[in-house]
């Protein structure tokens, strides 16, 4: 049974139909990269999965539980969105760390707040702190835990943002162009962390413009164009022998650069 099943997701903003029926599924431990030009709907898709946008149609199923089915009003209740959201994590393009908290506090804020509401998962303070420390070791920032975001480079901030998402133990971790706001030098350190996550079989969806990375890390790739999935499959196939004309065009632009 797949971890994630997305069926016929549609989303319209005003008169623009951004997603025109997206279907895909993801198995546990798989990394999926989503590529496509700007405006193809990649980010909107991630935002729908994280309940930051509500799709107009379609369904999202995680581990067999229907989290959202636009045809079934009982799945659309505001009050349950918060719980459902925790199946997903999201790392933003612009990091969005909380500036008034240190790196460590950024990672601990949400679990601490949830612990106060008797979420048993985070109740053990010692374990939570130990886990945060482990995460900082994993992202190579043990010595920067007590720095404020503005004292960190963009690459370091993004790594903290990844740790902040990981401590919530999402079933599926989403990355929305995690390196687009970084210069090439800092891109590498973030990609390294994501690569390590995929080696540990973290289930991930990565929206990215880093083609080489998308090919190397992913078990599966989706090429989106104009709000539809134009082509999907094994990365080696899609990148080396794209079937669709549109995919060829898109990839050739990248290989030229």
């Amino acid at each position: 049974m797949p971890v994630l099943e997305v069926r016929n997701i549609r989303k319209t903003f005003g008169r623009t139909e951004v997603l025109k029926g997206i279907d895909f599924s993801l198995d546990k431990g798989e990394a999926l990269s989503v590529i496509g030009s700007s405006g193809s709907g990649k980010t909107t898709l991630l935002r729908c999965l994280n309940f930051l946008e509500r799709p107009d149609a379609g369904s999202i199923t995680v581990n067999g539980e229907v989290l959202l089915d636009c045809a079934d009003a009982s799945t659309l209740r505001e009050s349950e969105i918060r719980r459902k959201r925790l199946h997903f994590g999201l790392v933003f393009q612009s990091f969005n760390l909380f500036p008034q908290y240190t790196a460590l506090e950024n990672v601990l804020l949400a679990p601490r707040l949830l612990a106060k509401e008797n979420h048993e998962q985070f109740a053990d303070k010692e374990r939570l702190n130990a886990e945060a420390r482990e995460l900082f070791a994993d992202i190579g920032l043990s010595d920067r835990m007590n720095n404020y975001p503005h004292q960190l480079s963009g690459g370091q901030q993004q790594r903290v943002a990844i740790a902040r998402a990981l401590i919530m133990h999402p079933d599926i971790l989403c990355f929305d162009e995690p390196t687009s706001a970084l210069d090439p030098e800092l891109t590498g350190e973030v990609l390294k962390v994501i690569r390590k996550l995929s080696e540990q079989n973290t289930t991930m969806i990565i929206v990215t413009h880093e083609m080489e990375f998308a090919r190397d890390v992913a078990d599966k790739v989706i090429f989106m164009d104009g709000g539809v999935i134009c082509e999907q499959g094994n990365p080696r196939e899609v990148f080396s022998h794209p079937k669709e004309e549109r995919t060829k065009q898109f990839l050739s632009r990248y290989s030229q650069n």
Binding site: N50, F51, L52, R82, R83, R85, L86, F88, G89, L90, F92, S94, N96, L97, F98, P99, Q100, L109, A110, L113, L114, A161, R164, A165, M168
Partner: peptide, 27 residues
């Protein structure tokens, strides 16, 4: 305060109230 701050709080499972008092207010 950038909307990304609220969204970051939301995807971490915080309530709007928690986000206001713990994230937005001091900024």
């Amino acid at each position: 305060v950038p909307v990304g701050q609220t969204e970051a709080g939301l995807v971490l499972g915080m309530t709007k109230r928690q986000i206001f008092f713990n994230v937005t207010l001091l900024q």
